[in-house]
Design a protein around this nucleic acid. Structure first.
Lengths: 339, 339
DNA sequence: ATTAATATCCAAAGCGCTTTGGATAGCGTG
DNA sequence: CACGCTATCCAAAGCGCTTTGGATATTAAT
């Protein structure tokens, strides 16, 4: 019942070589024969066995991505969009996406296995850390990959990233220009690349303005659901709370905390958040935010980079740095001076 | 440099057969030899080529899921969680998830290709429709699959679904018990299974109460971002608006529309929505909703079903029907009588 | 007409694994 | 000592495709 290359070629009275070539568009086959072959393949519903082809060619036409257990979606309401963007763009190149799940404590070993088993042609590395051993592993094995976020590495590699340092700086400069001096920062753990970069930009802007960053006002929020919420509650409970606040992550938890404390735009505390507020979240006011294109376009960019890497383009040219900008809203203004 | 079964067995002075058996835990190899083999494999970093193994065994250890282009995330803020749940649970069985993207207009052809190319061992079919040709195709080809949502089919198959009919009925009954007579329903297109079922339950409850469902009050909202919003606006703009409203989908758009019209809980219109409001959405009141376990637990249930299907369990026993219940909030109450 | 080039096709050798169908050796039984 | 059993191992045959290295027929060049 099932038709493979052998039965197909026999039914045509041709060799497997010729049929294979005809179907794969080689030139060493006459046009007439090719038509016959194509027609027969269509009629019999022939579909090459991909395992056999993969074994013969060494390609899998599959790109891999590793999701760590359980942390995959947290704090990342839009990660689904990124995946969606990746798959769509990959599909244009007849590539699939393989999702591999890893226990967070065995992440590196998982990468090693995935590489050695040859299940995928390339990998997309997400959630890069400042010093990321996965990058080193992949480079050492000479394995094609694209990083979603830069890390420290002398050897060039393909990456997509946001200019988080500029983002942190822009937000701080805006608040400084409004007259704020006590500016707080709620940031994700600094082992995360983006958090470190935003933090650096924020601190740099303060220093450039001659302000010594107050450690009390720079708080780390765990990358879980309540992290942002609790960090903001803590800041608001201070004896001398900040007059302005930059939230580099988990804006939703922060907004909720502010709301629970009766905060409203213009009521004293200026707020800038990183990333746009997802459409799904109804707010009666517009939040001033550090904007960067995220979601599906990010996924598409990643997919494009993967395709370029596989095409053998020079790695030191495969960089995409998206520069954020401030999208003004109603949540920031000059500090309110009491007395 | 790269070590395969041949080099490994040669370095051990054993046949490929024996090495293969030792590694795969067969009994026909002495314990001493097995130890030697395992040790050498570990030391040399041997990792079987998965393509070769797949070709030889006919298994791929991969489960497939098809994402239609662009519609994938719309109206489904939680779909990422489902995928996350699937991959995690599959990983426990050493299975991966392959995401394949399809143009919506060529969905069936995409399934056919995916089946015939043998890329995956089984498929998870999502967004089932009332009469879904994909189910028929898979059954015809005798291909293992699990449906996320039931459809019409005489032949048994594995599925996971919510009891949407009960959900629609429960919501309507609650509103009826509160004294409402003009109850509106905003529903997704009825070709979607869940929409049809919720609709049926809703209508049945009304009829049972002796109320003729008013076609004016039953409006279809397209499954896009603004569908729910516009449907609710339309209802609120009626000369004689409903006193109660059930939203079967896209609660967020509906809430936004209500908010834009100055609606507040207790202000005259009762509201029940389907599904819980995502944690990320800050609301100052609790919405009465038809609850059902969604997100990661759904993904895990789907993965479990896949594993059972592959294990050959009888399909007519592989059903999971989750019954929803009403989670009371502050958004419904008796109708307000004027005059 | 002869030779060289070209077009067209094919047999067979992999790709790296699993698995079938023996082969060999050790061992207790009668 | 012959026999049957079990334990242990191996050679070789696939799995279904691509690709190498010819072979043969056809056409162009001399």
């Amino acid at each position: 019942m099932k038709v493979n290359l052998k039965t197909l070629s026999e039914s045509l009275g041709l060799s497997q070589t010729t049929v294979s070539r005809a179907l794969n568009g080689y030139s060493e086959v006459s046009e007439r024969t090719r038509q016959r072959v194509m027609e027969a393949a269509e009629r019999l519903g022939y579909q090459p066995n991909s395992q056999a082809r993969q074994l013969a060619t060494g390609r899998t036409d599959t790109i891999g991505i590793v999701f760590p257990f359980s942390v995959s979606t947290i704090g990342d309401i839009r990660f689904g969009e990124v995946v969606s963007g990746i798959t769509e763009r990959l599909a244009e190149h007849n590539l699939d996406l393989l999702i591999h799940s890893a226990r967070p404590d065995a992440e590196l070993e998982t990468y090693r296995r995935l590489i050695d088993s040859r299940r995928v042609d390339a990998l997309i590395v997400t959630r890069t850390r400042v010093d990321d051993p996965r990058i080193g592993l992949l480079q050492e094995r000479n394995y094609p990959f694209v990083a979603y976020g830069r890390t420290q590495s002398r050897i060039p590699y393909a990456w997509f990233d946001f200019d988080n340092e500029t983002g942190g700086r822009l937000a701080a400069e805006r608040l400084l220009a409004l007259g704020h001096r006590r500016i707080a920062l709620v940031h994700a753990p600094l082992e995360m690349n983006f958090a470190m970069q935003r933090h650096a930009g924020f601190v740099a802007a303060l220093c450039a303005a001659g302000i010594e960053p107050d450690p009390e006002l720079i708080v780390e929020a765990p990358a879980d659901r309540t992290g942002g919420y609790q960090a903001v509650r803590k800041l608001l409970a201070m004896q001398q709370p900040p007059t302005a606040l930059l939230v580099d992550n988990n804006a939703i938890g922060a907004l909720r905390a502010l709301g629970d404390c009766g905060w409203k735009p213009g009521s004293g505390l200026s707020l800038i958040v990183y990333d746009s507020i997802p459409f799904e979240i109804p707010l009666t006011y517009k939040v001033t935010s550090v904007m960067q294109p995220t979601g599906e376009s990010t996924g598409q960019a990643l997919a494009d980079l993967v395709v370029d890497v596989l095409a053998g383009k020079p790695l030191d040219q495969l960089h995409q740095l998206k520069v954020p900008y401030i999208d003004p809203g109603e949540t920031d203004g000059p500090p309110i001076v009491f007395g």
